[in-house]
């Protein structure tokens, strides 16, 4: 089950879930990922598919502008905008792209600072949210500077980097499969962490987008299912070593990152051991409160962003988003 929807489903349909408390040693997963499937302190899911965010860039394009991947590692968004403008001026290529009207990028920025659209009690915190305001400011800067190309659909987004018109992307690690569609760019990509927000307390260079966890249904043989999960997705490096090359599924289970397969250099990424790096990133991702109304809140924020980009004042757009979510919550 999709991590972002996990709490919503457990809370709305409690009868369909079994506790997964015995299905894994949860300390072997990043806390932020375990939190997605935890409701009132009880674990309902075993994390599987990683949504850990990566910044992936074309090293040949960066080199043309006089940069290396290290210049984009452990930086802040202000640094990023400056460097990305320089890359755009020298090579004509923006570094980022995304779907207009999607809140994915903003949500990754927000989570990287350990902030959310809800507080711990589940109340929406869209208005007067410093981290959200900083995220939106950054996003608007990126778009206005021309270093973030907005497109209309997901397929177009994939197209922007596969056809080489955009020289990088920031997304969940699952995007690496689509990156590798561009066989003619093999060896010219590298992966690093995300820029962090400037002037926001708790800001980090790590975040997540998407990912999923296993749930045990209430009509299942819970002991058998728990045992299965414990000896596979929460306990077998061999399993992860098998499914990584065959399907591109990257683990959340931290010990998987120590295996030889994860440490293998990936030719497409210039010989970087991308997957071991990503498992390490995953351990540093701050948690995000999702809750029942997460998608309503995301949609409201998406609408607000579209308004802000077309000139509406940020405070009033976010106030409106806050009221929309409060209305949805009844």
């Amino acid at each position: 089950m999709q991590n972002n929807a996990f709490q919503k489903n457990v809370i709305n349909y409690p009868d369909l879930f079994s506790e997964a408390t015995d299905a894994a040693d949860f300390s072997e997963f990043p806390q932020s990922v375990v939190d997605y499937s935890t409701v009132d302190g009880v674990n309902y899911g075993v994390p599987f598919d990683s949504g850990t965010a990566i910044g992936a860039y074309r090293t040949d394009v960066l080199a043309e502008a006089g940069y290396t991947i290290d210049d984009f590692t452990d930086i802040t968004w202000d640094d990023f905008v400056t460097k990305a403008k320089d890359v755009l001026a020298k090579t004509g290529k923006p570094l980022l792209s995304g779907q207009a009207g999607s809140s994915d990028t903003i949500m990754m920025m927000l989570q990287s600072a350990g902030a959310s659209l809800f507080d711990a009690d589940g109340n929406p915190t869209i208005a007067d949210n410093k981290a959200l305001e900083a995220s939106i400011d950054t996003y608007v800067d990126l778009v206005n500077a021309g270093v973030f190309t907005e497109v209309n659909s997901w397929d177009e987004y994939i197209g922007t980097f596969v056809n080489g018109s955009v020289a990088g992307t920031i997304n969940g690690v699952w995007i690496s499969g689509s990156l590798q569609t561009a066989t003619d760019q093999a060896g010219n990509w590298a992966v690093t962490n995300l820029p962090k927000l400037d002037g926001v307390s708790g800001a980090t260079n790590f975040s997540a987008n998407g990912g999923s966890s296993w749930a045990i249904s209430s009509n299942a043989d819970v002991d058998l299912a728990s045992d299965f999960l414990k000896s596979t997705f929460a306990g077998s490096t061999e399993l992860y070593d098998t499914i990584l090359p065959s399907s591109g599924a990257v683990a959340n289970w931290i010990p998987a990152g120590d295996s030889d397969v994860y440490a293998q250099p990936v030719d497409f990424f210039g010989g970087q051991a991308v997957y071991a790096d990503v498992v390490t990133f995953g351990a540093s991702v701050p948690s995000n409160n999702t809750g029942v109304y997460y998608y309503e809140a995301r949609d409201a924020v998406s609408t607000a962003i579209t308004k802000i980009i077309s000139g509406t004042d940020m405070a009033s757009a976010l106030d409106e988003a806050q009221s929309a979510v409060e209305f949805a919550m009844g």
């Binding site: 397929d155 994939i158 197209g159 596969v162 056809n163 569609t181 561009a182 066989t183 003619d184």
Partner: peptide
Amino acid sequence: TSQDVLSS
């Protein structure tokens, strides 16, 4: 190929 389709 997929890449050609994405490049229209």
